[in-house]
Design a protein around this nucleic acid. Sequence first.
DNA 1: CTGTTAGCGCCTTCAT
DNA 2: ATGAAGGCGCTAACAG
Lengths: 337, 337
Amino acid sequence: MTSTSSGRPRAGTTIGVIARELGVSRSTVSRAFSRPDLLRPETVERVRAAAEQLGYEANQAARALATGRSGTIALVVPDIANPFFPPIIRAAQAAADGRDYCVMLGDSAENPQQEQRLISRFATQVDGLVLVSSRLPTAELMDYARRRPVVLVNRDVSNVPRVLIDSTTGVGEAVVHLAELGHKRLAYVGGTAGSWSDQQRRRAVTAACAAYGIALTMLQARPATYAGGVETVDGVLASRSSAIIAFDDVIAHGVLAGLAERGVRVPDDVSVVGCDDVSAAMTYPPLTTISLRCADAGDIAVSVLLDLVGGRRVTDLRCSLDSKLVLRATTGPAPAR
Amino acid sequence: MTSTSSGRPRAGTTIGVIARELGVSRSTVSRAFSRPDLLRPETVERVRAAAEQLGYEANQAARALATGRSGTIALVVPDIANPFFPPIIRAAQAAADGRDYCVMLGDSAENPQQEQRLISRFATQVDGLVLVSSRLPTAELMDYARRRPVVLVNRDVSNVPRVLIDSTTGVGEAVVHLAELGHKRLAYVGGTAGSWSDQQRRRAVTAACAAYGIALTMLQARPATYAGGVETVDGVLASRSSAIIAFDDVIAHGVLAGLAERGVRVPDDVSVVGCDDVSAAMTYPPLTTISLRCADAGDIAVSVLLDLVGGRRVTDLRCSLDSKLVLRATTGPAPAR
DNA sequence: CTGTTAGCGCCTTCAT
DNA sequence: ATGAAGGCGCTAACAG
């Protein structure tokens, strides 16, 4: 027995049977749900009661066919298992749910072809899409956006609405912090080459280091994973940097592990800063990192998308979310030379 | 410009326009896609070419309305941001995609009410559901399963198909390993109270410790998070255990942090074992942990579900996936008393 | 305020 | 092997 008092939804309870039961037309039943404002409140109530009692559940497919809207949006990400994305997905799903929308999830496995396939598949059956860290060419994204509502996250394409998780301020703070600790040589360990985020961070470190007279070595974790972070350590050491800023927390942890393997102490010998703050607090030693507003991004992206779906014309929306440095245990004074 | 040679999908390309274009009936066009075996190969080819050229995309809603099947399944999890789930989700999505199905994702926020809401919402519009670590009462799950195809992951309800990520063997191996290292007192730090997984692990440690004459202290991280793990450390220390098995890697890391705060060395003073092996390898120090076949679970759950959807009658399927201990850096010989 | 009348785009018997 | 006709369940003018 379920706890609800209604009879269990017998398949095949349509507006038709409710209508017959109540001696009204099917339109009336339909309106009781979609446009109750057009009905006498009393009627609405009667219909709803009958529906409840008969275990009626609207058929979404039928509704979608009739209205042209599915009540569903798509969300595609490069890799669900990368801890950067779950907070975004979670917030996006919650936001959609709050507006009575469902979300279809796609994982492109960092593969543009797969991403394209997913988008084409989804495009025909959702009201709009959120594309996170898309790996697709700009022209293609503009193309998609022209046909259906699209919101980008962490991809800056003019004329398509986008929310950007901006690490600039956080990176700046990190460099200042390191400079104040007396560091003179810094290494940046980049992530996915060419990604919007990586480019942004490269620019930010470059600018900040220039401003503070810090020598900067540009490295790249390949692949952009924990293992890639481990391997990058030789390069870091070769550069004689006393501080490292990594593209993300995962790579930072790889760097940490690589450093430890070689007997380099953190933060005594070398300081390390991560980025994302998504697993940083849950690991030992606690990683000093740049905290990003990922959840906000998911939430906002969906809100914007649903506004678009609702017909609001948005003119080149570009929402930038700031970041900040969070001090924990992996940074310290530069060692004496 | 897109790379495909086909014209861009003009909205409103239906089987009707293809039919007219080719001078055939709509049935023929329809069959070219859904039942090509009923058509002359040559006809199929002609139709497909025209469709391609006109940028035809089947309308899923219409198809769903006509056939009663949506080509979509639902996947609901308690918390996307918990690193245990993404590998499952990822594999499930990939498996669905491979069979041309879409997946709707729901996050219940560990909340049974929310889970119920999501399920009701989804139930009407998907062909089947995968429920991961469901927090719902058994009776209710059976009820749902009676109406639509349902596959459970990590929840053992008889007569509903389920795939269980079994930690028993791994826990056993962990206890043996610890016993061989000379540990006499062990603490188990449990997770979400009452969850299937936690119960299973409790049983497994209890049995193994009994077999090896190890004194066991049962603790519980509350909440079942990193922070909860940190706080549980006082209890661990009070029990004078020299080894700890934690419910999952996240809690294990909390324990690690708590231990470090109090100056307890790992593994010199205390050994720690996690469970899941999902973030364990990507963190420093590398955590000895019980490796679970999460991705397999997602994959299998979806396969089974789609078999069910396809009409195969499954009689009380119960698939159990074994686990194994993975040695890394957080276990060592018991300290001399 | 409510009923009537047409579809939405596709699939599917039933004929041919 | 293909066409004709009806219906899936709902919404949306248009009347009244």
